[in-house]
């Protein structure tokens, strides 16, 4: 049975998120991303009231568990676009393969340039794929899974906050290309954000999310050691 304490933290999270959501609707500034604001606000509350994270987690875990069902629900926009998607699948597949290789190697390269050790660089490498896959890739290569989880969340938030203005700035105007770019770079958090602005963009983002997760899982054990070999 759910404890009262867990329930309080769930309600707190929902209330904080709803307020952040209203703030964004009112002011429409990209930095007011509800996910970012809610995380900062709740972290602030926990730290200032000296509540240990595992206590909050008791309630938070119920919400995290719902994530699985929410990802399944993305099957609906995917289906709604499936006529278009079927025709374009070879192209999408090719581009996601290129972008996944690029994402893995480019991240290692940038991290090394920023002074990270090879262990840290390889843990950051799968940051553009969804958390469970990123953690799996890192643990299979003896990296630091917790670091991957942090990088995945930051990457997602970065995409959710700046992704849409960045896409417009880069003159990526086709809704399909915008979805693909968001899903390839910022996985599920970016997909959740872009789905709110357009279901078509959301469907392509979900497609890119699925493909980049599977392709990265297959390629990472080859690409990551190879790139690390070049750099050492």
């Amino acid at each position: 049975m759910m404890s009262i304490q867990a329930l309080i933290y769930i309600v707190l999270t929902v209330v904080v998120f709803s307020v952040s959501h209203l703030l964004q609707k009112r002011f429409k500034h990209p930095l007011l991303n509800p996910v970012l604001i809610s995380i900062l606000a709740i972290c602030g509350m926990l730290v200032s009231m000296e509540i240990p994270y595992h206590e909050y987690q008791e309630g938070g875990d119920y919400l995290t568990d719902l994530l699985g069902i929410a990802v399944v629900a993305l099957g609906v926009p995917l289906y709604q676009q499936s006529k278009d998607i079927r025709r374009e699948l070879p192209g999408v597949f090719l581009i996601i393969t290129i972008s996944s290789c690029f994402a893995l190697s480019n991240t290692i390269f940038l991290a090394t340039l920023a002074g990270a050790s090879s262990e840290v660089a390889l843990s950051l490498a799968p940051k553009s794929v969804t958390t469970p896959i990123a953690v799996m890739i890192t643990s299979s290569l003896n990296g630091i899974p917790a670091l991957s989880a942090i990088a995945v969340i930051f990457t997602g938030i970065m995409g959710a906050v700046f992704g849409i203005p960045l896409l417009s700035l880069m003159r990526i105007t086709s809704p399909k290309a915008r979805g693909i770019a968001m899903g390839a770079a910022s996985h599920a958090i970016g997909t959740a954000r872009i789905t709110q602005s357009s279901l078509q963009e959301g469907a392509y983002s979900a497609l890119a999310l699925v493909l980049s997760a599977s392709i990265s899982a297959l390629l990472a054990p080859i690409v990551i050691p190879t790139v690390l070999g070049w750099l050492s």
Partner: peptide, 23 residues
């Protein structure tokens, strides 16, 4: 149900993000 979940999916990432506090 699916429409509701897709619209509010962002909320579910908040506890994961707060998990950064642990690291």
């Amino acid at each position: 149900g699916a429409g509701f979940l897709v619209r509010w999916m962002s909320l579910l990432f908040v506890p994961v993000g707060v998990g950064v506090l642990d690291h």
